[in-house]
Design a protein around this nucleic acid. Structure first.
Lengths: 251, 251
DNA sequence: CCGGACGCTCTGGTATACCATATACCTAGG
DNA sequence: CCTAGGTATATGGTATACCAGAGCGTCCGG
């Protein structure tokens, strides 16, 4: 049978209409983006979210909002206290340190796998990413190093070829990003970080899983130690949350 | 009825009553338990859940059920397909291997921390746990080794003192448990496992973080390799659900 | 003038009604 | 007898109404 029906699809190339876009998913994305956009740790007071107000603003009913909130709560971005409100969570120093510790475990495993399995071109791309940044390492661009930093770490994760690693670190990165913006300015951490990164790249290039793993782990644990030592402002800010958010909301 | 309440709070410390009191939490717990109870990988066909039926059976409305489903879906236990149903997810071999890989990363970090920070009595307790099991290591009790195994690994996690590690591995353990029940019977894995465990305990006792980390990692990666090699039955079973899905080339 | 009890209001939790569509079955036409 | 199209039903998604409890202001009594 030489093509009785020769690809009828090719005639009308109907794009896949996204049946997956549901209000819940939309609300989830919007809220998560909003939360990530605000620099949580710069805000002086706790931020409260109101289901009804959000549903009005987004133009949907409370139901999808609530389901999105349920997701965000499980991910640790908000905390809902019955009959009191939904609050954006600010992590304590201890929690941040734990996050970085977990990150260290996952990232070192990713580095190990990357050293074993990553393609040559991927590693080359990683080096290029960091080299490009290095050339433009002015003080002006220090701010955007935070993003380059995240990009580097995410690249390592991706190069491990383990989708679950990427999935499990996704939310960690979000919190990490907020923290980096602050710690990056302390103690010459940016330069040290760049150095560490190049060492990791070298380990990948020579295909040394043990070394790559160790370097990645120590790099992350170094950050953990740094936060442990200099991150007290995190807890200091968190103590403010006793203040009712947006005190003037009543009428 | 202006009866002055004599502050029962200060007398009895019943604080965690409201934790499970919400219907959503209740439904979530019930559903998760039910899903864990059934051996997912023994079931021949996909299992479908019906919101309305469940709400009737549990005696609550659909709303809390849906929110619980939302959580379970994010955790990867179910998958809901609009207008078709909610299905219990069966992980593919690849996904299981990735889970074990992630586990390796987290658990090796936990072992490292445990070697550094765990109390002497905790380590002693861990040894006791395994020793007790060893004495009763009949073939009859092989079945319950699966649970002892999980208990060992969870103990390591707990001894790390990192709550987030425990939280992030919680769901991994659930899937792992189902897998262990099968792999444990293959290839003398039970005995090897016990040996590995004792080596890890020894590393903790001599406070050698590097060694503990390496042993824990290799132990887990060994399981990953084993599943990679002998876990094809996972995909075989999973392929059943592909039939009705059938990407719809026509129709 | 001060304090405590009452009650208003706002908020998340729950129940229920309705909607759009995937699936299955049924019917009519060849 | 077989296939195409219509229709009934089932199922997840969404909107809305109501409930109970926590804050906070107010009012009355001392």
């Amino acid at each position: 049978m030489p093509e009785p029906i020769p690809r009828p699809r090719s005639i009308i190339d109907i794009s896949r209409l996204d049946t997956g876009s549901t209000f819940r998913g939309l609300a989830y994305a919007a809220l998560k983006r909003a939360i990530c956009a605000m620099d949580i740790y710069d805000q002086p007071q706790e931020i409260r979210l109101d289901e009804r107000r959000l549903s009005q603003r987004l133009g949907v009913s409370r139901t999808p909002i609530r389901e999105a909130m349920t997701l965000l709560e499980q991910e640790g971005f908000v905390r809902t206290r019955p009959r009191r409100g939904i609050f954006v969570v600010r992590k304590s120093k201890r929690e941040i340190v734990e996050m970085i510790t977990v990150m260290a475990g996952l990232e070192s495993m990713a580095a190990r796998l990357a050293a074993e399995r990553a393609g040559k071109s991927e590693i080359a791309g990683l080096r290029r990413l960091m080299t490009e940044f290095r050339t433009g390492n002015d003080a002006d661009r220090l701010a955007e190093y935070s993003d380059a930093n995240i990009a580097f770490h995410q690249a390592i994760i991706r190069m491990s070829g383990c989708a679950l690693l990427a999935e499990m670190t996704e939310n960690l990165f979000i919190h990490m990003r907020a923290i980096r913006k602050i710690t990056i300015h302390q103690d010459n951490r940016a330069e040290r970080s760049v150095l560490d990164h190049f060492r990791i790249i070298e380990a990948l290039e020579v295909r040394d899983p043990e070394l790559a793993e160790r370097l990645a782990r120590d790099h992350a644990l170094g950050l953990a130690a740094h936060v442990e030592q200099h991150g007290d402002f995190l807890d200091a800010a968190a103590s403010i949350d006793v203040v009712p958010a947006e005190a003037g909301t009543h009428r």
